[in-house]
Design a protein around this nucleic acid. Structure first.
Lengths: 336, 336
DNA sequence: CTGAAAGCGCTAACAG
DNA sequence: CTGTTAGCGCTTTCAG
């Protein structure tokens, strides 16, 4: 088939192991033979077989990113950060979409572990039950979580400061003078979203405002759209909305447009994540900026560090800062 | 380390090769021993080492997707289709972002081939020079291109019907009564975009309209934004714009908003790709729907087929249909 | 139907 | 500094 190490060793008149030394590491090798071997390898278009190497070294230099859906711009951005960091460290990134389906997730996990990936980045642990969490631990794979699960785990995590983000959103709305506020968010027990809600509640409380109306649904465009429609009808008193993420906010925007409601004239809207599109829609969406790219980046760095030290060591919790990005979708409450 | 085939063979009282047969294929094996081996494997939490298997079978059951940037929603959607298809076929997908950088691309290609991926899906071949194309062929890796390069190649391709899409856009604008039309697009020699342009020109010609104003720039949001600004200033006579892709169209939209121009009152705008956001922006963008998900899906199916037959066989060209999606950004030309 | 043997392509002691 | 010897964990003839 293709040319192997042995072939080039023979051609260069050395033993396979010497050839290996010349091409891989920088061990004590005679500079002359080294040059020769390298040249021969180039001439013969030698392509080292990494899987053979992996078999003996036990490292595949491949990590996996297991997320719910890459089409979610949040994850696309995160994935890019992860891929860049992986690439910089000489690793490849396997992409897996779980759709939050625990079964699919476990299937991926098993398959990835059989492929001996060096480690796994995953977000969708939220849906895992205790027993599955145990199975995950049984895989003995370095894992970094991309969100803080509600259940306490022994995994390292990298996430944005969701609590602070929620707080910022609440404070902003409060400062603009809103009192009747709604928060639409995803399913309960979604780690990130619950934190956002908690921060939000804290902010309203410290501003001595009444508790907001909280609605749970799908944390997606259509989820936001649906929730908006039902509550526009039922709660006309509301003057401001904090959406659990930008996708939901866009859904609200769409529903509002259908009702001829305008932001910020008729209502204020603030999102979370600060996805690219937030600046493109009109009016540009005020949002809490989450460091998506950096989460991906830091997560693989953390993961690779764990891999280096053989999976040992205490889990590390990294929380990356968020900030409020004021655009055009929020204003003072409508007068009537 | 972890439990190996040999371990479970010993525990089940058979030879490793028999154990292998029981667990992998469906060779002629005694049903009794088979059950036993499988059970022992389960009890001992045996996780077959796929890289060892790969070393002997020569298949890694891993393919790579090499695109310019996963943050581009077009590719995110395509990637999802690819991942779903790969997963369904029992393969994993490695994600690589090249940023259209030919050097980065070749580096990935080399690295992927050393990892013995089964094949590669790539879009960014546009920027490859002849010599690099040859290097790519030298890798002897099954490749499926996600766009039709201008240079004739021996690779299989899967792409949307760009010519027809351009034609549909042109016909739509012509039918609405526009005569002074502009087309803003990406760099010359970008396979997909040139096809769109060609189809567009053909449509205008067959409607006996004058040739449009064609502007080249970056095929991105900011590219569209920049081009729009320069031509709003220089060509006030234009009443309709066909953007080479939705991202550029959004850029145009943003520039227009800054000038207080409204679609479709002051100008008509049509995009290409029909990205998710097209329905979210306001007004919702009329666009040519490209089957992004399907391209990814069909591409891996094609790739896997090539892999099956050992890389032999003639290249296959698949062109997937597009359609016009009329929304709210186009109307008749302004009267004055 | 199952065992023995050989080897995929590479690295890693261990001598020399 | 370099060759020899063993495997990594699995599949695959080839006998039996």
């Amino acid at each position: 088939m293709s040319v192997t190490l042995k072939d080039i060793a023979r051609a260069a008149g050395v033993n396979a192991s010497t050839a290996s030394r010349c091409l891989s590491g920088f061990q004590g090798v005679n500079e002359g033979t080294r040059q020769r071997v390298i040249q021969v390898a180039a001439e013969m278009k030698y392509r080292p077989n990494r899987v053979a190497r992996g078999l003996v070294t036990g490292r595949s230099h491949t990590i996996a990113l297991l997320i719910s859906d890459i089409r979610n711009p949040f994850f696309a951005e995160l994935a890019r950060g992860a891929e860049d960091a992986a690439n910089a460290a000489g690793s490849d990134l396997i992409l897996c979409n779980s759709d939050f389906d625990a079964g699919k997730q476990m299937k991926y996990l098993r398959s990835l572990s059989e492929k001996r990936v060096d480690g796994i980045l995953m977000n969708s642990v939220a849906s895992l039950r205790r027993e599955q969490l145990k199975q995950l631990a049984d895989l003995h794979l370095p894992v970094v979580l991309l969100n803080k699960p509600e259940i306490r785990t022994e995994f390292s995590t990298v996430s944005s400061d969701n609590f602070e983000g929620g707080r910022l959103a609440g404070a902003h709305l409060a400062q603009l003078g809103h009192r009747k506020i709604a928060h639409i968010t995803g399913p309960r027990h979604h780690g990130n979203l619950t934190e956002r809600l908690r921060g939000f509640l804290a902010a309203l409380k410290s501003a001595r405002l009444p508790a907001p109306l909280v609605l749970h649904g799908q944390n997606s465009f259509s989820g936001g759209y649906d929730l908006a429609h039902i509550f526009f009808a039922k709660h006309p008193e509301i003057t401001a909305i904090f959406a659990g993420n930008d996708a939901m906010a866009f859904g609200v925007g769409r529903a509002a447009a259908e009702l001829n409601l305008q932001f910020p004239r008729d209502m204020s809207l603030i999102g979370f994540d600060d996805v690219d599109l937030a600046q493109v829609v009109s009016p540009p969406l005020t949002s809490i900026h989450a460091p998506k790219y950096e989460i991906g980046q830091v997560a693989v760095e953390t993961l690779l560090k764990i891999v280096e030290r053989g999976g040992a060591g205490p889990p590390e919790q990294r929380i990356l800062g968020v900030k409020l990005v004021v655009r055009k979708s929020c204003g003072p409450p409508r007068t009537k």
